[in-house]
Design a protein around this nucleic acid. Structure first.
Lengths: 359, 359
DNA sequence: CCCGTTCATTAAATCGATTTAGTCAGGCAA
DNA sequence: TTGCCTGACTAAATCGATTTAATGAACGGG
């Protein structure tokens, strides 16, 4: 197609139309060999040892010349392997899911695997349907991120932040007891005694475990809990909007608190907005601790003190564990739980309680 | 199928091992029919009209009973269709890519397509290699997000924020002239005359087009540009860190400016941090305008005034356009460019220039 | 000169579904 | 009785690669 690009004609469009793919049979024909021979050589099969070096080279040269690539479907059909895994997430949000996906991808691509992603937006029917659809696509394994797996599947499953014990499912989960201790000890050491909490949504896998850990840690530290200071996220919108609303509700109740521990950074950021609007300064009047340490936490104003989950690493571990189980052909034992450790990241949203507030 | 859902007896682990998949042949055998007949019926092929209702029902019933699902590879091999597309992104970051991906996914899954994602982290070799790898996987089309496509491929390609004119590539791009006008007019109307700019990285597809649009709009509005007030992002880290660093550089130069227009929200947020550290208040001393309107922009403090790109919608359009081109079998004309419109979102990071600064 | 090897290569089955070009039995008209 | 339909299926080729068992030629030893 003639295209006039005036002077400085940088070849913008490389218009070579790539030739349609060559089949094994065509290559065999060209070389005067049988498909079998070529396949053996291309796959470095042990049987190819009997084939002389000269033939090897002839075949490799021709393959390069015609850009031969084995047809993925034919090969998968024959070998019964797809080198593909499925990933189920609530949504491809900023924050949580994006970080975990990054870790998963890193590891999978290194190992020659690709992955299909689906997001269910917390719809129960999709949570049921998508794993099946993925299995119809012959994925060799599944990673469920913050998604409940009710029943086992015939392929290996790894659940990031999963907590149910299900046959064939490996859970990657944070040490929530430690996370709760880190946060509460930090607040306590700053003098805070009356702490408000934003609990996660019903549907989030971590909600219950995290909450129990908090109750336990509070007891250990001698902090008393006050139901009037606890609110729970309810909507499934994945923005700070949701933390904002419940925090307004919390403030409206008029309860007395000097610190707030949120379910995640997203809602912590929403909470800070609500607090400011209500005339409470963060951290001077109220200290806020988030959870996750998503990328925007460090650059928020004030920079967010938070409990970091190694999300990227959790994705990597999930992928590595899954591939290991796949490679073993279902023989390897299926680890029930792999625990990762949280880390307290102290930034600028927490401060010592005001002297006037101290009791 | 009998299922006893006794009183609240939530079965945690449903340990039925799903039976291994049934093949068409096995089903045929069971029914005393040939695979051909079953295939015809299952696919509602016109040839199945000759087959009586009773047989239809017998087949459908058996298929349900044994959970028959056609083998994906066998079918793809035969039909030469994969119902899969490839998506290439720089990284699965918070912000930009996540939003576009969301839009892509929505549309694709509705249409029965799945997608494979790869991120190249701006490595030139991967930008070359991944599209080929995806094609070996028989994807029917490719969506490149903020990724340069040097040459055409044998499959349809849609480039989100692409600007090169390449055979077989449809670019989805923002009306950057309008975007530049919106931002500069807004700042100008607030009294700003000395505006600093953070330019995008060399490797980002939008950088050049956006910059030209800015120069043009500045001229139209009678705003003079000062090279000492322009800095350029250089690193490929996808966090606000990068905006922070170049802004410190900018501030260190000592140039006199009352407003800053950043390449994206991420860097605007970094810039705000740098400005505050240098003792400049935002928006009182310096107004800051971002770009993209990522989720965290609205909840940043101060809430970010920004030029919104309809990123999600761009993803949807990309997917829809790609599927249309695929469906036409390469017959439909390949639209060169589809333009979407930006929107100025005024929040709290911009304000009238201080009287003392006015000239 | 015959036999057992080794070497180099290949025929053919297989993976599982799709699809075209039949086949065969029964009914009906001439 | 013959021939032609029609209705209800099916045989077999095909998609493209893999893999096992086998083939034929050459060669060396007895």
């Amino acid at each position: 197609m003639p295209r006039k690009n005036g002077p400085r004609a940088v070849p913008l469009a490389d218009s070579r139309v790539p030739p349609q793919p060559v089949s094994l049979k065509a290559l065999a024909n060209y070389l005067g060999l049988s498909p079998a021979t070529i396949s053996l050589v291309m796959n470095r099969s042990p049987a190819a040892n009997a084939i002389p070096r000269s033939t090897h080279e002839r075949i490799l040269a021709a393959a390069r010349k015609f850009h031969y690539k084995p047809n993925f479907f034919a090969r998968s059909l024959r070998k019964q392997r797809s080198l593909t895994i499925g990933v189920v997430v609530p949504e491809i949000s900023e924050g949580y899911a994006a970080l975990v996906l990054g870790g998963i991808e890193d590891h999978l691509l290194q190992e020659g695997y690709f992955y299909l992603v689906v997001s269910h937006h917390h719809r129960a029917d999709l949570i049921e349907e998508y794993p099946r659809l993925l299995m119809n696509r012959a994925v060799e394994g599944l990673i469920a991120v913050d998604t409940p797996c009710k029943h086992g599947l015939s392929i290996p499953v790894v659940a990031v932040s999963g907590h149910r014990h299900v046959q064939g499912v490996t859970n990657i989960s944070l040490n929530h007891s430690r996370a709760a201790c880190l946060a509460l000890e930090h607040l306590r050491s700053l003098g805070h005694r009356r702490i408000a909490f934003i609990k996660g949504q019903e549907f989030s896998s971590d909600t219950e475990v995290r909450w129990k850990a908090i109750l336990h840690a509070a007891k250990d530290l001698g902090l008393s809990m006050d139901d009037r200071l606890n609110v729970q996220l309810d909507s499934d919108i994945p923005t700070s909007e949701l933390g904002y609303h419940v925090s307004r509700k919390l403030i409206a109740r008029g309860g007395n608190f000097t610190a707030l521990f949120a379910f995640n950074d997203i809602s912590a950021i929403g909470a800070i907005r609500a607090l400011r609007e209500a005339g409470r300064r963060v951290p001077e009047d109220i200290s806020v601790v988030g959870f996750d340490d998503i990328q925007s936490a460090a650059f928020h104003n004030p920079a967010l003190t938070t409990i970091r989950q190694p999300l990227r690493q959790m994705g990597e571990i999930a992928a590595a564990t899954l591939l290991r189980r796949i490679a073993s052909g279902g023989k390897a034992p299926c680890p029930k739980v792999i625990t990762v450790e949280p880390e307290l990241v102290i930034r600028a949203s927490t401060a010592p309680v005001l002297p006037t507030e101290r009791n």
